[in-house]
Write a protein that binds this DNA or RNA. Structure first.
Lengths: 153, 153
DNA sequence: GTGCTTCGCCGAACTTTATTCGGCACAGCG
DNA sequence: CGCTGTGCCGAATAAAGTTCGGCGAAGCAC
């Protein structure tokens, strides 16, 4: 993971669909070299994939929320089962397994408040391992797809 | 946004770097048609971009956390300023503006616990509009990059 | 210092893909 | 029944992806 790899990764984070030639030119290396580097980054698991960023409203997910969930007992079996359950639900777009007072934070998207409510009541709260959950509506979601590198300190 | 558009979007969510020809073949249409559809999707803002998914540890972000923050007064000026501030920090990878007891949820990544602590103490808690915040470590983060379509109901 | 080996980069050759554009067919409408 | 607009197709051209032999620098043994 030298400076060249970082530069390539940065470019692919910014725009994953620009041509290999363009990336090569920007990072100052031959296209064949850039291609080989990219292949290795993928192989090493540094690059996990390439995904289009889609406007949620276009996917019928105009309403989004974070749901904090506490489950009991806090055993591996229960955690794994609940995790697998939530990931399988179409409304769920991300699952965080947490330390602290909440065991899970689930990012969900639904068509509107009514659908969100139905999801919470009909799907989520069915699970017997849940001993409590709290839903917070997301007004705005800003994701940084091209994060600045961390300071060295 | 007909069935063809959805199919193209789905493919690009799954793998944004596959060739237009492959996508065209999978969705059953000519490459030129597929290209034109993709161009329009981009133009309409349905497709917001294409980004590589990078392993956090490769970016020196081995430790991640969600930070729930309450700010006062809850005015637009304060909210916008705090939002801009957090988005500008390199450790911050996403910002949620929330309804409910927390006004913000901030997704941060740092090299280790020490760096995370330093970030919270030296950067975040400097802000005078913060009246309280709570940090929860993320053990695991599962993101669905190819979400199943929502049920019609 | 010198010869040997390894590694990574380069650039040319070849294959595949992107992109453009004229034409055609179908649907909607007067 | 003809007219018009829209969207898809496929061929042609330009551009990009991909492979591979060779070269030069770096590291090492002697």
């Amino acid at each position: 993971m030298d400076e060249l790899d970082s530069a390539i990764v940065r470019e692919l984070q910014r725009d994953a669909r620009q041509s290999n030639r363009d990336i090569a030119r920007k990072v100052g290396v031959a296209p064949s070299t850039c291609l080989e580097r990219t292949r290795l980054l993928r192989e090493r698991g540094v690059i996990r994939g390439y995904h289009a960023d889609i406007a949620p409203s276009a996917l019928n997910r105009g309403v989004q929320a974070l749901v904090s969930v506490q489950v009991r007992p806090l055993s591996r079996a229960v955690i794994d089962a609940f995790k697998a359950f939530t990931v399988g639900l179409p409304e769920v777009t991300a699952v965080f397994v947490m330390a602290g007072s909440d065991d899970f934070v689930i990012h969900v998207g639904a068509q509107d408040n009514e659908h969100l409510h139905a999801f919470l009541v009909d799907r989520l709260s069915q699970r017997k391992e849940i001993v409590g959950f709290r839903t917070s509506i997301i007004f705005q979601h800003l994701a940084k797809h091209d994060p600045a590198p961390l300071p060295e300190a």
